[in-house]
């Protein structure tokens, strides 16, 4: 499931980014052969693995020096436990020749605000979603999820900005 700025054009602003953030099914961690396959696939593409996935490191960070792209594959995205209701709210979108799940807008907001390394850029992204998709967001769900992730205050302060 696609997270981060690449998910933005579906419900927020468009902007440049050099990061690819993806959430992986947590079951991947239970299958070492899948982790090995993923790591090997990246290696074959000349991608440097900065931190490999493991039982104690739930994020695979990689850098593609040739194409100048960085990416992170998350097993436990911040503020987004990979539960059924979150998966039910993701959206399916087609890229050039493949389809991909995109995180739902409410969970996109919570994920951005729950990041321990949150930057002003993350808050800009959240604002853009609130501004563009505010009337279609499920506010009860968003409020509940923000509360569960401890970011209600941040969310409400941002809502007052627009």
């Amino acid at each position: 499931m696609l997270l981060g700025a690449l998910a933005l054009p579906y419900y927020g602003r468009i902007r440049a980014t050099e990061d690819v953030d993806m959430a992986l099914c947590p079951d991947v961690a239970l299958h070492p052969e899948l982790l090995e396959k993923l790591n090997n696939e990246l290696k074959q593409r000349q991608v440097e693995i900065v931190t490999p996935l493991s039982g104690t490191t739930p994020v695979l960070a990689w850098t593609d020096f040739e194409n100048k792209v960085e990416g992170e594959f998350w097993l436990e995205p911040d503020g987004v436990p990979m539960q059924k209701e979150i998966l039910d709210r993701r959206i399916r979108r087609r890229f050039d020749n493949f389809e991909l799940w995109i995180i739902g807008p409410e969970d996109f907001i919570v994920n951005k605000l729950a990041r321990p390394d949150r930057t002003p850029l993350d808050e800009d992204d959240v604002l853009s979603v609130l501004k563009k998709s505010g009337s279609t967001l499920d506010m009860d769900y968003l409020d509940r999820r923000a509360g569960e992730s401890g970011v209600s205050g941040l969310l409400h302060s941002l809502q007052q900005k627009i």
Binding site: G12, R13, I14, R15, P116, R118, T119, P120, E123, D124, L127, S128, K131, K132, G153, L154, S157, L158, K161, I162
Partner: peptide, 23 residues
Amino acid sequence: ERRRLLINDNEVRRVVEQVERDR
């Protein structure tokens, strides 16, 4: 530090303008 907003009012205006442009 994580419990406060990091953006300023100029950035808020810029984002609002971007969303209007995208629309």
